[in-house]
Computed example of a mutant assay.
Amino acid sequence: MNSGLFTVMWGLTATAFGWIVATDFRDAARRLELMSRRSLPFGLGRQPVPVIAGVPVLRLVAGVFGLVGPVVLVVGLVELAGPDSAVTSAMPRPPLPFLLFATVPVALGLWIMWRPSGPLRGEWAGGGVVRRAAVVVLTLSVLCGLFAFVFDAMTVQPLCWLSAAVSGLILLPGRR
């Protein structure tokens, strides 16, 4: 995978995420904080939020992403336009036990997100056609990223990341 392509994708995602959450577009910061609390296992999400955490801190962190994202985007575009743009970085294939161990967090994460009180189940139940399609694309993108990692298809992995980021940005702002 070309490092410039990764940098451009990171910059685009960080910029979009940062500006949407920092400006609290359609109450996105509160929804993200609520989704992250609902995704905690074993009832930890029902505990009171510490004073240091919450929506204001989330908006502050998102503001940093919103400011750094355009800079990273420009750096990535310069890398893509530069003379070394055809050079790709080949990653060594990880050993099989590591690949099997990598599936555990993905499976656990999908289980947490799709359980009856999970955020994806709530988005599915309360969403229209676009929101349900975004939930399906987000789930399939996570699985696609795992299979691309396991089967060493690193050229497909940026597409999985990009589709997951776009579908996550569709889900984040909330309903009208």
Rank of each mutant, 00 (worst) to 15 (best):
M1E: 09
N2H: 10
S3D: 04
G4P: 08
G4A: 13
L5S: 13
W10V: 14
G11A: 09
L12W: 11
F17I: 06
W19Q: 06
I20R: 04
F25N: 05
R26V: 10
D27G: 14
R30A: 14
R30I: 01
R30W: 00
R31W: 10
L32H: 04
E33S: 11
R37P: 01
R38I: 03
S39K: 00
S39Y: 00
L40C: 02
F42I: 11
G43P: 02
G43Q: 03
R46W: 01
V49P: 00
I52S: 08
A53E: 12
P56Q: 08
P56S: 03
L60I: 13
L60N: 10
A62S: 11
G63E: 10
F65S: 13
G66P: 07
L67C: 14
P70W: 14
V72P: 07
V72D: 02
V74N: 02
V75W: 05
L77P: 04
G82N: 07
S85A: 15
S89R: 12
R93I: 01
L96D: 03
L100P: 01
F101Q: 02
F101I: 00
A102I: 02
G109W: 06
I112C: 09
M113I: 04
G118N: 09
P119S: 14
G127E: 08
V129I: 12
V129M: 09
V130T: 15
A134Q: 10
V137A: 15
L138R: 05
T139V: 08
L140Q: 02
L143N: 04
C144F: 10
A148R: 03
F149A: 15
V150E: 03
M154D: 12
P158N: 04
P158V: 02
S163W: 12
S163E: 04
A165W: 01
A165L: 02
V166K: 05
V166E: 02
G168K: 02
L171Y: 02
P173G: 09
G174L: 06
